[in-house]
């Protein structure tokens, strides 16, 4: 079996977000780039499954749609343990554009399990995995919080309101994963970092795809009005405010 993990290159989650050109573009100055946190958890789980599979999982590949500046993020995924990287050489325009580029490559290269994080921490759209599955005409299982291969069978659990469901599906499928699939991302070892430099990173040119939506501009939230402080000895005052002023309790 082969596993593919789709990864997005996103600003570090602690980045102070700024925009330039009259709020029309994201200011990349001094930004650290990372593997999208959910994608990193997906990769971590893929590596755990491969390591425990006794060779049944042949390879874990990572794929990214991005320009050359996303290569350090792909190399990090290789350092974590992925065997091979693929980059589709295009600036992502919207989720559909990304999904369509991925689908194009997947017509040529086949995988049994395709994993996507449930959202990316930059656009928070939760779209790419679902769109990709539809374009490939394969099943998708979303909100996946557990994945394993047992006796050659794929075992999946997805989180539902107040519990979980065990789901069976045919391969290939797209698994859209969330927290729980892994708890902490795997940290690259020194050996991993050294070997990542020589692992294959293939670059494909994009196909012509029109975006379906257009980001016009960005705004920062208005600063919040100051927090009303209440003395710790005067907790009754807080209850009073919540009851009479905010009318919430």
């Amino acid at each position: 079996m082969k596993i593919l993990v789709c990864i997005s290159n996103v600003p570090d989650t602690t980045t102070k977000i700024k925009f330039t050109n009259n709020g029309t573009s994201f200011d990349k100055t001094d930004v650290q780039w990372i593997i999208n946190p959910w994608d990193e958890l997906a990769l971590t789980r893929a590596m755990d499954i491969k390591d425990a599979s006794g060779g049944a999982i042949e390879s874990v590949t990572v794929i990214n749609v991005g320009l050359a500046d996303s290569e350090p993020t792909i190399r990090k995924a290789l350092a974590i343990g992925a065997d091979k990287g693929i980059r589709i050489n295009a600036e992502p325009k919207d989720s559909y554009f990304v999904a369509a580029q991925l689908a194009e490559v997947l017509k040529k290269e086949s995988f049994d399990i395709i994993l996507c994080g449930i959202e990316s921490s930059d656009f928070n759209s939760s779209c790419t995995g679902g769109m990709l599955s539809e374009l490939l005409d394969v099943p998708s299982v979303s909100s996946v919080s557990f994945l394993n291969i047992e006796n050659g069978q794929v075992k999946i659990k997805r989180e539902i309101d107040g519990g979980n469901e065990s789901v069976s599906t045919s391969v290939p499928f797209v698994g859209i994963v969330q927290k729980g699939i892994a708890i902490e991302p795997r940290i690259p070892s020194m050996r991993g970092i050294m070997s990542a430099r020589t692992k294959p990173l293939q670059v494909f040119e994009p196909v012509q795809v029109d975006a379906l939506v257009e980001y016009v501009n960005y705004e920062l939230p208005q600063p919040k009005s100051a927090c009303k402080k209440i003395e710790p000895e005067n907790v009754k005052e807080l209850v009073n405010l919540l009851h009479n002023e905010a009318k919430l309790i």
Partner: peptide, 14 residues
Amino acid sequence: KVYSAKAFANIIIK
């Protein structure tokens, strides 16, 4: 909301 609630985006559906 985008950037994990740190900003808003205005988007046109084409």
